[in-house]
Structure formats: structure tokens, C-alpha cells
Design a protein around this nucleic acid. Structure first.
Lengths: 302, 302
DNA sequence: GCTATTCATAAGCATATCATCTGAATTCAG
DNA sequence: CTGAATTCAGATGATATGCTTATGAATAGC
């Protein structure tokens, strides 16, 4: 004979209210049904829980003992259910997102701020790391998702495109490129500020120069995008950088111009462990993230 | 949508075994039924508990959290049920019995010893007190039952006759009464050892003397039954005492002879709060107690 | 590419659950 | 002391719930 929660609820209601009839009302059921539940429980436990005359119902010693224990159980269960509901309703939760430093600086702060505003109970943690570290962290579940421009991603990892990022020419406001769409060929002979060769962007730029057949001779070679932008602002040359570089230093007086023939674009994608369910909080965060990603790189996706 | 224990058991089995099919086997049910239970639980909680592909089932983050909470709840419940069963099976329990000192010394020790032997988990406590205190203690539920010779008992208190106790003549082996049933009238002029006037027994003796019309002149007046028996043993007189006085000093060399015309008898009764249920341990103790009571005062009851 | 395994879905059916009605016991009012 | 009212227990029938069987879809291994 199995003990059920319903029996326990019936028992607790009777124990609290002291009468079967009132307890039945509270539980929205008929009194005989409730009598039956209590009887079943007594039978399952092997002890009488109530001494009942027709006029008075009171707990036996064993009943009082069981009341304490079962009240705690019911309370714990309510708490557990409440916790689960909190997760479902995004009142609680924890998201860890990995992103390369630039993207982390460009997109994440605003997205996190909005998330914090709308769902104060959800904690968002950031891991800024290099691309390969990010993939590793996603695969080993150390983070819930990763943001970046990932070329080929192994399987077992899901890819969700967020926005399309395009290489652009960054120049100073007075530059001769300031008002037009720029063709790569126009860059011949222009002093070029590049990133160092360990950067993925530098690689793309080299490919493009080679494609259009002009030699790449760096005027300056720096490792940080912000440094490159500072040099551009100082009119020491132009730089070819991804769209989202604009967000890295919004206060700088530099312009970004589209580069065409060829247009070189990469997807900014969110990756996360495949096959696993997406927590409600993470699902919301993804949509927020996509909005801010597109605001930075408004080119259409797919 | 209500959460049921069955759903939780299903969930825990799947969480532990990692597959629905195996869990269904353990729970002795078909796999679809178990799938349904888990689905219902997920729906009630608002979160997915498992990430399931057809090949792999693993807990989500929320699932793991709920697993911990619900496992504790199920464990607590099992414990509570176990405790109740222990009470039912007399593996555990506590009985407090009140009795006047003499009865407490005469009957209770052996009864308690047997109880302890058969049900080691049940604690039996003794409160030795005067008759009126006993009744009061029973009425206020400070003790579970009381033993004694209670004349009229108020209602709200149940009376269970245990044995019939009779006034007897206690004399030394060499006395002229040693071999016969004694008539009260034969006591005329015999040196009588009595209890002091605050004793209920003394009262009965006075009534009997008056009834048969002989004067009561105490040779000695003592307050303890054991003292009276010692004086009898020393051949200083005879004493009129209840049957169970024999048990008070089994080593003494005194004889007890029935007293007739009139035969004065009282019931040794067990009293306990009326309308309340009798715990399994107490029920057992009552039968044990009755056996020992009858052994002392073998006269039939009712 | 085929088979075996695993979980989800659908439909039918047995069982359990609950509400209504009725009865017994007790209390309270007159 | 009698009658009304209250309260819990029992019996019966309608409804609902839960389980099983049968089937389908997806994946991994051979």
C-alpha cells in the first residue's frame, strides 16, 4: 500500500482544521472522499492518526509525530517546485558566455545590462578568451555558450548565426575615402595600419590584397584593435577591420566605409553544446544578444 | 497541475539509471507510462528535466537541482513512514503508567520486565503517586494509564478491570488462623496491626469491624504495609490487608487467609483517558499487566 | 544500408477516485 | 428528556485517471 501526497495533504488539512468537513471544503472535495484518504493513510502507516468521535477529531500521539514530519516534507516539496518554477520564469539562473575580448567589449555589456534589467535574478558571467579556448570551453560545458566568428565548428556543437560581419575601411573624417564605398584596389599605395599576423583579421586582409593583386606593406603593425583605431584617428593611415570594431571605441573620430570587390564577410555566431536543452534564461539571452549584434553589424544574416 | 509522488519516483529512477526502459523495468511498469509521468512532471515544473535523444538521456541543470531536492524529500518520507511503522509494530514507543507505591512495587516490575524483553524499543515509565494524583494525571494526559483501586471514576476516563482484590488476614505461620478461612467475628480481641487512618484500606477495615459489630482497637498503627507485615512476622498481631500485599514482601514468613462474612473486595482497575485511541504498545502492555495482576489476586473479575 | 535499440505517440481498457445519498452517533436547545 | 442539528462512516454509480499494448521515428552499430 503506497502513501500518496494527496493522502498527506488530506491528513494535514484535517490535522490543522480539526474537522473533516472543514478540511474537505478547503481541499474542494466531498467529506467522504477525504475520510477515505485519511483512512488509507492510516492503513498504510499501520497506526491511527486521529481519535475521532463524531463530535471531535484530534491527533493521536503518532499522528502528531507524523504531522511534523509530513508538514516538513510538503514544505520542502513546495520549495523545490518553486525553485524549478523560478528557473522556468527566469527569476533565477546563471549563464556563462565566452567571447573574444573585442566582441565581449562591443556587444556583451549592453546585452547583459538589458538582461539584468529584465531578469534581475539571472546572473550572467563572461569569460573573455581566444577563439580556440572558447570552442574548448563550449565543448566541455564550462560555458553555456560562446560568441565569435567561428569558421568550421566540430559537431556536437550547435551554431546559431547572430549577425553578419564585414571587413570595412576605417579612416579619418578628412580622408579621401570618407564619403564613398571603397574598392579594395583603391587601397594601392595607401599607408595601411594592420594587426599583427597572429590575428584572424590580418589573415583575411592578406587574402583580400592577394586576391585583388596589390602588395600589402604595413605602415604600422599593432596587436590591439583599439591601438589601430587610435593610429587611424591620428591620420597615420587607414585600417581594415571588422564592422564591430566601431563599437570598441565609439568616442574616436574615425569613419567606417564598406569595402567591396570583394566583400569579405564572416558570420558572428553563437555556439553552444549541441543536443542539450536551452535553459529559459539562455533562450532569452540569445534573442537579446542577436538584437545587439545586428545593431552593430546590420548586414543581413543568411 | 499537481506534482505527485509517483512522478517524482519515476523521475528519480530515470535520473539514476539513465534510461527510460531500465527505469520502467525497475518500477514494474511499461516504458510509455513512465515517459508520461516524467512529461507530466516536467510540465508541472515548467522546465525540462532531461535532455533526451533516442540514444542518450541526461539530466539538465534544472533536473540535477530537482533531483537533489526530491531525493531528500523521498528519503524523509520513507523515514516518516518507517517511524510510523515502528510505532505500529511496537519497535518504538513510550508508555507512562501511574500506580500507588505498593501496586507499583507488586505488579509493575515484572510486567515492565516482560515488556522490555519482548519489545526492547518501547520505554515504560512509572509514576508512583497517591490515588487522587493518579486520577488527575490520567485526566490531564500526563500519563497514558493508571493502575489502582478506583471507586467511582468520573467520565471521560475509561475503566478496565484487571483483577479482583480482596481483604485478607495476614498472620504468622503458627497462628490459630493459619489453616482456615477466617470469619471477621473471630477477630474479636485479637491484637490488630492497622495502617494509619489516611489509608483507604484502614477505612475498609473500620467499616467491616463496624458491620460485624466488634470494636476496633489497634495494637499497632503503622503507615507502610511492609512495616505491618514485619510486625505480623514478629508475632505481634494480625493484619488485614489487600491480597496484593503478599507481593510486597514475598520473603516474609507470613500467611494470607481469606476473610469472609463479609467478603470485602475491590477491583484493581486500569484507567486511561476515554475516547482516545490506544497505542499498539499500550494495548500489549495492558494484556501483560492483566496477567500479572491476576497472578497476584487470582479471584475472578466480573 | 540494414537492423536493433530507445524514446515518443495513440488508442483502448481496467482501475481508482470522487460525489451523492444514507445511516449512526453525539451534542445542544428547549 | 426529547428532537434537531452536526459530524463522520459506508455504499453506490459516474467520471477520470493511469496503465498497457501497438505503432512510429530517430539514432547508432554492423
Amino acid at each position: 500500500m503506497a502513501v500518496t501526497l494527496r493522502q498527506i495533504q488530506a491528513f494535514l488539512a484535517v490535522a490543522e482544521l480539526g474537522t473533516f468537513t472543514k478540511a474537505a471544503e478547503r481541499l474542494h472535495m466531498a467529506q467522504p472522499a477525504l475520510s477515505q484518504l485519511v483512512r488509507e493513510l492510516e492503513h498504510a502507516l499501520g497506526i491511527r492518526l486521529f481519535d475521532r468521535t463524531t463530535r471531535r477529531v484530534e491527533l493521536t500521539e503518532g499522528g502528531r509525530e507524523f504531522q511534523g514530519a509530513s508538514a516538513k516534507i510538503v514544505h520542502d516539496l513546495d520549495l523545490a517546485i518553486q525553485n524549478a518554477n523560478d528557473l522556468a520564469e527566469r527569476r533565477r539562473g546563471r549563464i556563462t558566455v565566452a567571447a573574444p575580448p573585442l566582441l565581449a567589449a562591443a556587444i556583451l555589456p549592453e546585452a547583459i545590462a538589458e538582461m539584468r534589467e529584465r531578469f534581475p535574478g539571472v546572473q550572467v558571467a563572461v569569460l573573455d578568451a581566444r577563439t580556440d579556448t572558447i570552442i574548448e570551453a563550449v565543448r566541455t560545458n564550462r560555458v553555456d555558450c560562446g560568441l565569435g566568428t567561428f569558421a568550421a565548428v566540430e559537431d556536437g556543437i550547435e551554431r546559431i548565426p547572430m549577425a553578419r560581419d564585414q571587413l570595412m575601411l576605417f579612416c579619418s573624417p578628412g580622408s579621401r575615402f570618407a564619403d564613398t564605398t571603397v574598392d579594395w584596389r583603391e587601397l594601392r599605395g595607401e599607408p595601411l595600419i594592420t594587426l599583427t599576423r597572429d590575428s584572424g583579421i590580418r589573415l583575411l586582409v592578406e587574402v583580400a590584397y592577394e586576391t585583388v593583386g596589390i602588395p600589402l606593406v604595413p605602415a604600422y603593425e599593432v596587436s590591439q584593435i583599439t591601438t589601430a583605431l587610435a593610429l587611424v584617428e591620428a591620420r597615420l593611415g587607414v585600417a581594415v577591420l571588422p564592422t564591430y570594431a566601431r563599437a570598441a571605441a565609439p568616442h574616436r573620430r574615425v569613419l567606417a566605409r564598406p569595402l567591396s570587390n570583394p566583400t569579405i564577410a564572416r558570420d558572428i555566431v553563437l555556439i553552444r553544446p549541441g543536443g542539450r536543452s536551452v535553459s529559459p534564461a539562455l533562450a532569452t539571452f540569445e534573442t537579446i544578444l542577436r538584437r545587439y549584434a545586428r545593431r552593430l553589424a546590420p548586414a543581413d544574416v543568411d
